[in-house]
Nucleic acid binder design. Structure first.
Lengths: 159, 159
DNA sequence: GCTGAAACGACCCGGCT
DNA sequence: AGCCGGGTCGTTTCAGC
């Protein structure tokens, strides 16, 4: 499923540029990477088919949508068995406050990134949707002061 | 900076659809939400100007790029002063392995989401880029088994 | 906010290296 | 095979209503 794909420098340039702005036209792309526009089209289609490109996503500002407070919830689910954690994850994913969910190694089984209106909203979320659940053994809440996104995700230098 | 913006049901529908596929054409968008294509264009431009829409991003599969292992690093930076943490964050952001960085409340000051090739690569990253730094007091590494993205980020129901 | 028309970009195809 | 160039068609975009 996740076999590595052979990517030449042109592919990497294309990905690098599209990571900055996924709406860059093939014409501009072509001018930057030094091939014809139609070739860019072919390359992108190939990367899409190969599963390297998963999709185009809109990045929104949570604060502008009335969700100015973000937090990470570290959750222990006990007992940690498939028939319990499957429904748990699906319930959490369906919450409008959830942004992403991680299943982790370590003492905390899950980490949930949430965006809420304020601390009262956060308290409600934690109490009603997490600690009230029988399978949730423990929740630790960490507020997010600030978040940074990092440079484009690209393969190791060695190729 | 992050004042809330007035969004009517048409704006919300547009955001909801674009979150699913940011490449939906204005023509299709218009048909779905029940306004003219040019109106959709105006709405999106307005949402962009208002800062609700931050940008269009390509979602890539880290595994396909030779980064099949992801982890969260919880980092204590001591002393936790501006002149130390500013450069620390910038250095971490510049690493090709970094995906995002969070400044948090709680015992761990920073959480860093990284994507690496394998455990050897992760060990190298932790030893060379984190624990070897004087300002890094402690690093706790949690592997990511699985990650889920959640539904579209939208305002609280009350509107 | 809609309509229609002009400009623009995406995309397909046939030939070329 | 992969790359290019042009032609066609759909989309975006803007002026006027």
């Amino acid at each position: 499923m996740s076999e590595s794909v052979v990517l030449d420098p042109v592919d990497l340039d294309i990905l690098r540029l599209l990571q900055n702005d996924a709406r860059t036209t093939y014409r501009d792309l072509a001018a930057e990477v030094g091939v014809a526009a139609s070739t860019c089209l072919d390359r992108v289609a190939r990367l899409r088919r190969a599963g390297v490109i998963l999709g185009h996503q809109l990045r929104l500002d949570p604060a502008k949508l009335g969700r100015g407070l973000q937090a990470l919830l570290m959750v222990q689910v006990r007992p940690h068995r498939r028939e319990l954690v499957g429904p748990f994850v699906e319930r959490i994913r369906a919450l409008p406050e959830s942004r992403s969910v991680f299943h982790l190694t370590g003492p905390d089984d899950y980490l949930v990134h949430v965006a809420v209106s304020d601390t009262a909203d956060l308290q409600r979320l934690v109490l009603d949707e997490f600690t009230s659940r029988r399978e949730v053994a423990r929740v630790e809440t960490r507020l997010i002061f600030q978040q940074w996104d990092c440079g484009p995700l690209l393969p190791p230098a060695a190729g």
